[in-house]
Amino acid sequence: MKRTVPIVIAAATGFVLIVSSFIPLTEEWGSAAMQWFNILAAIAFVLGGSNLLRMNLQKISDRRLGWGYAAVTLVAFLVTLFVGLFKVGVQPTESFPTYAWAAPYNQEGSFLWWLFEYMYKPLQATMFSLLAFFIASAAFRAFRAKNPEAIALLATAFIVLMGRTYVGGLMREFLPERLEWLSFDAMTNYIMSVFNLAGMRAITIGIALGVASTSLKVLLGVDRSYLGAGDD
């Protein structure tokens, strides 16, 4: 029972979504199914949120490795939740001057807006910019000319890296017009629009077929690993 009911729900929803592409009458059913999922996922956040609180409180009380980070996480979580829910620092709008909570929670100047502008944004940007450093260390370690394929990869990387900078276009100044295709930027454009394009299409087609077959396995109840243990 524990496995049968979810399989029936998965199969029914999946087939409705497929059929809704072909039968006009069922078009609305497909979007209804999607809405149900969004509602369930939102409710499931309560599970996740409570688990997060419990785990971090436990880490702090046990003084486990890195418990200080758990304390920071907890404080950040609770403060953000509080200022967002209670709209701390939100001013009444012109349309509803007597209602303190009429303005949106992220109104400019509110506490949550402040958190977003001066905490969240710099932190996000920092994490993203770490990529520049990690790309450098990965390139240093991984790009080795071990075999002919790796040499081709290296040559391509060199051309594209140069072609994506000012130096790439600079070469044109020194090349005769009929040899301009040899400049890094022209070669980069060619690599991207021919080799890369063809490879990407092949990968995309393979992925699409993989998605179709994996989805079918789930719909037909062949793959049940995501359902956990239980009697059929």
Binding site: L40, A44, V46, L47, G48
Partner: peptide
Amino acid sequence: ARSLVMTT
């Protein structure tokens, strides 16, 4: 990174 994935 998702609550439902955790339960699954």
